[in-house]
Design a binder for these strands. Structure first.
Lengths: 129, 129
DNA sequence: CTTGACCTTCCCCTTCACTGGAAGGTCCAG
DNA sequence: CTGGACCTTCCAGTGAAGGGGAAGGTCAAG
C-alpha cells in the first residue's frame, strides 16, 4: 500500500507518516521502482500501537523506546510496565497539582464575582489576582 | 533601579524582563543617558501581578490583556472574572480527562505487572498497550 | 589604566508533534 | 497528450516562555 492509503487506514496524514519514519517510529519503508514508499499491512498495526501509546499519554520518544526493544527481538513488557508506572505517578502528580490550583482559582473567581468598585479601581492592579 | 536589581527583586532574570518588555507585559523602560533601563519600584508590583497570574495558570497573553485594560484606565475586574471562569472550566476539564486517563493507564499497568510470557512475545507488539 | 561586573542589541536554540508549501517526478483516465 | 491526483525531497514555521551566547558599551574600584 502507498503512503496515502496507509494514512487513511491508520487515521493520520502522509506528513505525519514521513515524520514518524524520520523519527524512527516507522522503519524506512520499502520503495517501488519509482521511489514511492510501499507498506505492508503490518504498518497499520504498528501505527495503532503508536496511537494507543499516545492515548496513554506517552511521548513519541517513549513509544519509540518500546518499539526499539521489540525490534531488537526482546519482549518490551518490562519496559512498558516501568513507563506506565512512571506515567501513573506523573498523572497523579498532575491531578494533585490541578486540584490545588482549582481551589485557588475558584477562590479568586468568587472574589472577583462580587467586586467592590472602590477597591477594584483602575489606579492599581486588580486586587483579585 | 537597573534591570539586574529589578530581576533580583522580582525573582526572575534580566533575559525574562527584556522578553516581557518585548511582549508588551512591561512598558518600554525609561533609559539612563548611557542607555541602561531604569525602573521604578512599580515594576516589582507589576511583575508580582504577572507571577500571580502565571500561578493561576493564565498565559502571558491573557495576563497582558488584563494589564492592557488596566493601562487604558479601566478596571479589569470583569475581564479577570471572565478569564478565571474560563480557566476554572479548563481546569475541571483537565482534571476529568486525567482521572479517566488514570483509570486506563492503571489498568494497562496492572496487566503488564503480571505478564504471561507466551503472549508477551517479541513477535508482536506488546499486548499490554 | 585596567579589570570585572554590569548593561546593550542581535540572533539562534530549546521541547513536542506536527503542518505548510515549493519544486519537481509518476501514474492513470480520457 | 494533457490534466489531475498522487508521490518525492527539503526548508521553514507553529506556540509557550524563555535561554545561550556573541560583540560591544559603561561604570566604579583599585
Amino acid at each position: 500500500m502507498r503512503i496515502g492509503e496507509l494514512a487513511e487506514a491508520a487515521g493520520t496524514t502522509t506528513k505525519t507518516l514521513r515524520f514518524y519514519e524520520d523519527q524512527g517510529l516507522l522503519p524506512p519503508a520499502e520503495r517501488t521502482p519509482a521511489g514511492y514508499r510501499a507498506y505492508t499491512p503490518e504498518a497499520v498495526t504498528r501505527l495503532d500501537f503508536v496511537h494507543r501509546g499516545q492515548a496513554a499519554g506517552l511521548t513519541l520518544a517513549q513509544i519509540k523506546q518500546i518499539l526499539d526493544i521489540r525490534d531488537h527481538g526482546q519482549a518490551p513488557c518490562g519496559h512498558v510496565r516501568d513507563l506506565l508506572d512512571a506515567r501513573l505517578a506523573d498523572i497523579d502528580r498532575q491531578i494533585t497539582d490541578l486540584l490545588a490550583l482549582r481551589v485557588n482559582v475558584a477562590a479568586l473567581r468568587d472574589a472577583a464575582a462580587d467586586p467592590e468598585p472602590d477597591t477594584c479601581s483602575a489606579d492599581e492592579v486588580c486586587r483579585y489576582l
